[in-house]
Amino acid sequence: NQASVVANQLIPINVALTLVMMRSEVVTPVGIPAEDIPRLVSMQVNRAVPLGTTLMPDMVKGYA
Rank of each mutant, 00 (worst) to 15 (best):
N1M: 15
N1P: 15
N1A: 14
N1C: 12
Q2P: 13
Q2D: 15
A3C: 13
A3G: 09
A3L: 12
A3S: 13
A3N: 06
A3Q: 12
A3E: 14
S4H: 01
S4K: 01
S4V: 02
V5Y: 02
V5C: 06
V5M: 01
V5I: 12
V5R: 01
V6M: 04
V6L: 12
A7K: 02
A7Y: 02
A7G: 02
A7D: 01
N8H: 08
N8T: 14
N8F: 03
N8A: 12
N8G: 08
N8W: 03
N8P: 02
N8Q: 11
N8E: 08
N8V: 08
Q9H: 08
Q9N: 06
Q9C: 07
Q9W: 06
Q9S: 11
Q9Y: 10
Q9E: 11
Q9A: 13
Q9R: 12
L10D: 15
L10W: 14
L10P: 11
L10C: 14
L10I: 13
L10T: 11
I11E: 00
I11G: 01
I11P: 00
I11H: 00
I11T: 00
I11L: 15
I11F: 02
P12T: 06
P12M: 06
P12F: 04
P12A: 12
P12I: 03
P12W: 04
P12S: 14
P12V: 04
I13L: 13
I13P: 13
I13F: 09
I13E: 15
I13H: 15
N14I: 03
N14G: 13
N14R: 07
N14D: 14
N14P: 00
N14Q: 09
N14C: 10
V15D: 07
V15P: 00
A16K: 09
A16Q: 14
A16W: 10
A16T: 08
A16F: 09
A16C: 13
A16S: 11
L17H: 00
L17E: 00
L17I: 11
T18M: 07
T18W: 03
T18I: 06
T18S: 13
T18F: 03
L19C: 11
L19M: 14
L19D: 05
V20P: 11
V20W: 15
V20Q: 12
V20E: 07
V20I: 13
M21L: 04
M21F: 04
M21C: 04
M21V: 03
M21T: 02
M22E: 00
M22D: 00
M22W: 03
M22V: 07
M22Y: 02
R23K: 10
R23I: 04
R23Y: 05
R23P: 01
S24M: 12
S24G: 12
S24V: 09
S24F: 06
S24Q: 11
S24T: 14
S24H: 10
S24C: 09
S24A: 14
E25S: 11
E25H: 08
E25Q: 10
E25M: 10
E25R: 07
V26K: 06
V26A: 10
V26Q: 11
V26F: 09
V26D: 15
V27S: 05
V27K: 06
V27G: 03
V27E: 02
V27W: 03
T28Q: 08
T28A: 10
T28W: 07
P29K: 05
P29S: 04
P29I: 05
P29N: 05
P29C: 05
V30T: 14
V30A: 11
G31K: 00
G31I: 02
G31F: 03
G31Y: 02
G31V: 02
I32M: 03
I32T: 03
I32V: 08
I32Y: 02
I32Q: 00
I32S: 00
P33E: 04
P33M: 06
P33Y: 09
P33V: 10
P33D: 07
P33K: 08
A34T: 06
A34I: 06
A34M: 07
A34K: 06
A34P: 06
A34N: 05
A34V: 11
A34D: 07
E35F: 09
E35R: 07
E35S: 12
E35C: 10
E35T: 14
E35D: 13
D36Q: 14
D36N: 11
D36P: 01
I37Q: 05
I37A: 08
I37T: 08
I37L: 10
P38E: 11
P38W: 10
P38C: 10
P38H: 13
P38Y: 11
R39G: 09
R39M: 15
R39V: 11
R39T: 09
R39Q: 09
R39I: 07
R39S: 07
R39L: 11
L40F: 01
V41F: 06
V41R: 06
V41W: 03
V41Q: 06
S42Q: 12
S42F: 12
S42D: 11
S42N: 11
S42I: 03
M43V: 04
Q44F: 14
Q44P: 10
Q44C: 12
V45Y: 03
V45S: 07
V45A: 05
V45D: 00
V45E: 01
N46M: 12
N46A: 15
N46G: 08
N46S: 11
N46W: 12
N46P: 02
R47M: 14
R47P: 02
R47N: 08
R47I: 06
A48C: 14
A48L: 12
V49F: 03
V49M: 06
V49Q: 01
V49R: 02
P50V: 06
P50F: 07
P50H: 06
P50L: 08
L51F: 13
L51S: 13
L51Y: 15
L51N: 13
G52P: 01
G52E: 04
G52S: 07
G52V: 03
G52I: 03
T53M: 15
T53P: 02
T53R: 11
T53E: 08
T53A: 13
T54P: 06
T54G: 02
T54V: 08
L55T: 01
L55H: 02
L55Q: 01
M56W: 05
M56A: 07
M56S: 06
M56T: 12
M56V: 07
P57E: 07
P57N: 05
P57A: 10
P57Q: 08
P57D: 05
P57K: 08
D58S: 13
D58H: 13
M59Y: 09
M59H: 09
M59P: 01
M59L: 05
M59D: 14
V60S: 02
V60A: 01
V60P: 01
K61W: 10
G62P: 05
G62V: 04
G62C: 15
Y63E: 04
Y63C: 04
Y63F: 11
Y63G: 04
Y63L: 06
Y63I: 04
Y63W: 14
A64Y: 05
A64T: 14
A64V: 15
A64H: 14
A64K: 14
A64N: 11
